[in-house]
Simulated scan of single mutants.
Amino acid sequence: SLALPGVFVRIDETLEEAAYRTIKEEIGSCDIYLEQLFTWGDIERDPRMRIISISYMAIVSPHKLKLVKGERVSEVKLYSVNKLIDTKEKLAFDHMKMIKYAIDRIKNKVAYTKIAFEFVEEEFTLPQLQKVYEILLNKTLYKANFRNKIKELVEETDKMTEKQPHRPSKYYRLRETEYEQNKGIFKR
């Protein structure tokens, strides 16, 4: 059955180091957003033995993905999260619960963090960013209201889209506040 990537934590590494090791082994990159998600400890979650898992949520741009088949797996493949949930695809252990928990976490974080910006390139158009918000929130947003809400978070670049069938769009980037520049918050 399908399973999320994971490893056992080595005696000489931290939880975060184990998470980054998994990411490096499975997708070949560590330049990503990573956040501890939840600790899973139901008694019979793994029929082999008592296993406690600490799950992490990683967000990585598709152009950074380089899927690598490691020693522990027969195949590495990307799946649409919505299709996995809708088709009731069989996942190992409680991995479906983990996926649903991560989706809920992202939806909740959209309201009070800049996590949506992890799903766009460094420079993006406002329609691209709005589409990300709509996907994460699972609802259609009114263009004018959306732009009003995010105007303090973005700054224009001097670039425009080219060779589009519609009117060119301006490119924007995430505006970093002085606090973020000094503390490294939400840095890429």
Rank of each mutant, 00 (worst) to 15 (best):
I99W: 02
P47Q: 07
A18M: 08
A18K: 08
I51T: 15
S169Q: 15
L4T: 01
T177H: 00
V60Q: 02
Q36D: 12
L91A: 02
T87C: 07
Q130C: 14
L67V: 05
H95M: 00
V110K: 00
E25R: 13
L137I: 05
Y172V: 07
I27K: 05
H166N: 14
L137W: 01
L174A: 07
V68I: 15
K64P: 01
I52F: 10
K149G: 12
E25Q: 12
I43G: 04
S169E: 15
W40Y: 15
A111D: 14
F186M: 09
V132W: 07
K187H: 11
I43S: 06
H95L: 02
E152F: 13
R188V: 02
E122S: 13
I27M: 05
N138Q: 11
L174D: 06
N82A: 06
K69L: 10
T157D: 04
P62E: 03
V132S: 08
E26H: 13
K88R: 12
L84C: 00
E162R: 15
D104T: 10
R50W: 11
I43C: 06
N138P: 07
D86G: 10
L4S: 02
L174N: 04
D94L: 03
E180C: 00
E16C: 06
K183L: 09
L67T: 04
Q36Y: 14
M98W: 12
Y179N: 03
Y20A: 02
K97N: 07
K64C: 03
L65H: 01
L78K: 03
F8T: 15
P62C: 05
Y101H: 11
Y112H: 11
Y101E: 09
Y56H: 04
V76P: 02
E44K: 13
M57G: 07
Q164V: 15
Y133W: 10
A92Y: 09
I106E: 01
K88E: 09
Y112S: 08
G28H: 04
Q181M: 09
P47E: 04
I85G: 00
Y133A: 06
R50I: 13
K163W: 14
L67A: 04
L137V: 05
R45C: 06
E122W: 09
R175F: 05
E122G: 11
E123Q: 12
V73M: 13
N182F: 06
F119T: 04
H95R: 00
D86Y: 07
Y179W: 03
M57T: 10
G6A: 00
D158Q: 11
L141Y: 02
F124C: 05
P5M: 03
N138S: 11
Y79Q: 01
